[in-house]
């Protein structure tokens, strides 16, 4: 009997991730980011639906798959693609898509990340993604 090198759940995650990546690419290309995010099960910050914490294996798998798939498409819009794929893989936990900005060497940089169960995913200082201030609705 053939043995799988990866857990079966990984294969499901990759196939779902590929579909999410395709939707994300089309959504970004057609300038329909909010609609695309909603389609993938990722909510906007103002939606305010409470998210739940993913389990450790779920989180590791989703992070691994999203990182690999998003990086396969090159550096342009990486964080947004990564966030949309990651958010889709964790959609059962109602993740929120955040956009933020920071100033670095007099230049303004934009970034996207996911928040789920109190965790900020894609905003780690080890990846050089620290110091972003989330954008919100003007008060």
């Amino acid at each position: 009997m053939r043995r799988f090198r990866r857990p079966l759940a990984d294969y499901f995650a990759y196939s779902r991730g590929v579909l999410a990546l395709a939707v994300a690419q089309v959504g970004i290309g057609l300038n329909r980011i909010p609609a695309c995010a909603a389609m993938l099960g990722v909510q906007a910050p103002s939606t305010g639906r409470a998210s739940t914490s993913p389990t450790e294996p779920e989180l590791c798998r989703a992070t691994r798959v999203a990182k690999r798939l998003a990086s396969a498409m090159g550096p342009k819009n990486y964080c947004l693609r990564h966030s949309l794929v990651l958010g889709h893989l964790l959609r059962a936990h109602h993740p929120t898509l955040h956009f933020g900005v920071r100033r670095q060497r007099r230049a303004t940089q934009g970034h996207a990340w996911i928040e789920v169960g109190g965790l900020q995913l894609g905003l780690s200082s080890s990846d050089g993604d620290a110091g972003f201030i989330p954008l919100g609705r003007p008060s």
């Binding site: 970004i28 300038n31 329909r32 980011i33 909010p34 906007a44 910050p45 103002s46 819009n77 947004l80 956009f99 933020g100 900005v101 920071r102 100033r103 303004t108 934009g110 201030i133 989330p134 954008l135 919100g136 609705r137 003007p138």
Partner: peptide
């Protein structure tokens, strides 16, 4: 609804979520 903003060092940064343009 698809426009978000924040003030960074005294200057506002606006993002049009639909187009992804800052």
């Amino acid at each position: 609804d698809d426009v978000v903003s924040e003030v960074l060092e005294g200057e506002a940064v606006l993002l049009h979520l639909r187009t992804g343009k800052y």
